[in-house]
Each structure stands twice: as C-alpha cells, then as structure tokens.
Design a protein around this nucleic acid. Structure first.
Lengths: 203, 203
DNA sequence: CGCTAAAGTGAATATAGATTCATTGTTTGA
DNA sequence: TCAAACAATGAATCTATATTCACTTTAGCG
C-alpha cells in the first residue's frame, strides 16, 4: 500500500526542519558563519548530520535559507513603515529606529548576516540582502528630495552610506554597542540623528 | 667557517619576501582573501609554496603582515592631515577625501581588507585596523565639538558611522562605485558631503 | 503480526588547502 | 675545488569539514 504520512509525522518533519534552521541561526548569531559547521548544527538541533541533508541539499543552501528568511522579515517591516506614509524625514527616522532597535534587541541578531562573507552562493544572497536594504533607503531619499524635504544629493551614495553607517555602528568592529554598558536609546538617537543630519535635516 | 650572507644574497632574500607580500596584496585586491591561497601566492610570486614558510610562519601571519602594512600607511596619511591643523571641518573633509580618493585610485585597494573576515588571527588585526581609523575620526569629532564647530553629539557612534558610511559606499556590496561609469569626483563629493552634514555642518 | 517505505544515524569518504620535509641546487669561506 | 651552511623545491602529509551511504529504527497499513 502507498505510504501516507500521518499528520503527526508531518509535524515532526516540519519540526526537525525548524530545529535545524533555529540551531543554525543561533550558532551564526553566537559566533558567525564560522561557528555553524554541519556537525555543530546537528549537535545543537539534537539530530544527526545526515538528517540535515534530508532537509537541505547543501550547507550553502541551508545558510541561504536562513539568511533570506531573516532579511525578508526585516524588509517587510521596513516596507510597512514606508507604506504608512508621512514625511520622508519621519519615514527615514522610523525606518532607522526600527532597524536599529530590533538589532539591539538581538539578543544576537541575524543582522550579523549583513557583515560576513563565506562562500560565493551565500555571499550572493548576503549582497542581495544588503541591496534590498539599500533600495528601501534610496526610495525614501529620492522621495524626500522630490518633495523638497531634503536638499538635492546623490541617492546611490547616500543610501550606501546610510546602510554602512548603521551597520557599522551596530555590528561592525568599531561599534560602540559591542562594548558593554549599552544605552539603547542613546545609540538609537545617535544613529538616527547622524543619518538625518547627513541627509540634510537640520533637525 | 661561519656562513655569512653576502649583500647580494641578502637582497635576493628581501626581494623574495617583497615579492611574496606583493603577490598576496594583489591577489587579495583582485579577489579577496579567498583568492589568496598559499599555492596561488607562490605561483604569482614565481616561487614554491615551501619558500613562503621560510619567510612567514603561517598563512595567517603573512596576511596580518600585509594588512598592518597597508593600514599603517593609511593611518600615517590621515594623521598627517590632522597634524596640518585647520578647522575640524577642514580636517574631516580632507581626511575623508584623501581616504576615498586613494581607495578609488586603487587600482584595487588594500582597503577591501576592511571588509572581509577569515581566521581569528587576521580578524583581530582587521578589527584593530578599523578601530585605528575610527580613532582618527573620533579625535576630529571631539575636537570639532570642543571648538564649537560641531553640535554636541555622540562621538563613538559618530566615528563608527563615518567609518561605516564610506567603507560601505566604497567597498561594500551596496557601493555605487562597484558599478561602472564611476565619476570619482562626484563620489568623493557625495561621501564627503554626507559625512560633513551628518556631523553637523550645514555646508 | 509482518512487510514496506520512509526517517534517522554516524562512521567512512571526499575534498580543499595549509603545512612539512626529504631532496636538490646554490653560496660561502678556506 | 670542496664541504658545510643555507636557500629553494614540490610531492607527500596533515587537518578540518562537508557530504555520502550502508545500515538501523520507526511509522503506516493490510
């Protein structure tokens, strides 16, 4: 007779997949891609290495899956903010604040993704993710300029600078957030202030 | 009798060391750390893999050497600019312009260093390099605030944002400079303008 | 129960790349 | 010219992981 997976079984499978993804995310968050070896992921997920390959064709695809999922979530939130309307200044401020706050809330943010290359396949996705973030900000900038809110400026460079600025301030090695005694609100304000001024608001 | 290297020999040795470093730098510039395998370095330098180990105890130390040398050079230039005095605004503008111009001049900048991790040892150095850049900008910022040129602001976050901004705009994946038809002056101006406004200059 | 399909395992294999070292070539100083 | 000391080579070795696959366990179904 044909083999039909019961609902319970179906759930277990999905659960395993979830546990693999979760384990990967945690390992990456804790110590970057380098920490997330297949053996480590398997151990953390409480399964065998072989089983991972039943769910993902390769380590690279597992990573890409984890990455895109995380980026999708952020992009959706940013788009939501833009969709809400308001002045370009409000949108930009809210977008940065949201991103920065979520990153700080971590505890150990998938955002580290934005900053660490490994293999070409994953890299491609990482870059795509960064571009998608850049596009959001480019849009807000262009809009603000069109509305006369911001002075005329190079939106490509501006978007790149904004992404670079808060990425570095948050997860980069220069980051003040890496040193203890963080005051989240202070950091959010500082980054938002920096970017808003940079874009032309006297604030 | 004791063996004493002749001057000529001494020079050949030094030349080999130089060629190894140069080959490494070029390979890294062309395709990142990943391209710079020991085999590739040896091939490019026109020597054997074994010889590399006569000059450097490990691949990591070779990379660290190449990295620090490059960073040292940049830092010295930035310090020279600061030492020349002038208003904080002038110093900041000149420092950014210098850095950005040199990076654009490439041909294929050692600055990619700033953006790509590999092993812990090299990472440590990379991070130190970024900190050293950050320190320069933190200094200029603090000075400008003290002199009343810039509004009061968080210098730690500001410095990180500045480093992040031009790093991303130059070598990051979002970078507009990666796409052809570059207009160097336009990019320099855009980045400098962004950072100066961010710091509080109405410009 | 007994039989099959799928889930799950983990030791064995494959691969890539750094590192070593036995060997060969060159330089030095008498 | 010769022997010791050093430079240089590159195939062989070591290492670290990703990936496979022969096998064990469990679930579905008559």
């Amino acid at each position: 007779m044909a083999y039909k997976r019961s609902v319970l079984m179906e759930e277990r499978l999905a659960g395993n997949r979830e546990r693999i993804i979760l384990a990967t995310r945690k390992l990456i968050a804790a110590g970057g891609f380098r920490e997330a070896s297949i053996a480590a992921v398997a151990a953390r997920a409480g399964i065998s290495t072989g089983l991972i390959y039943r769910h993902f064709p390769s380590k690279a695809e597992l990573f890409v899956d984890v990455l895109t999922t995380a980026v999708d979530r952020e992009i959706a939130i940013l788009q939501g903010i833009v969709a809400k309307g308001g002045s370009a200044q409000e949108q930009l401020g809210a977008a940065i604040e949201s991103f920065v706050r979520r990153a700080l809330a971590g505890p150990n943010l998938a955002y580290a993704f934005i900053a660490e290359p490994i293999d070409i396949e994953v890299d491609a996705e990482r870059i795509r993710g960064r571009h998608r973030f850049g596009d959001i900000f480019r849009g807000i900038l262009a809009d603000g300029i069109a509305r006369g809110e911001f002075p005329d400026q190079d939106v490509d460079v501006g978007a790149a600078c904004i992404v670079g600025a808060f990425t570095e301030a948050l997860v980069g090695p220069t980051s003040p957030t890496l040193r203890e005694a963080r005051d989240d609100t202070r950091i959010v304000d500082a980054i938002r202030g920096f970017c808003l001024r940079a874009v032309g608001m006297t604030n």
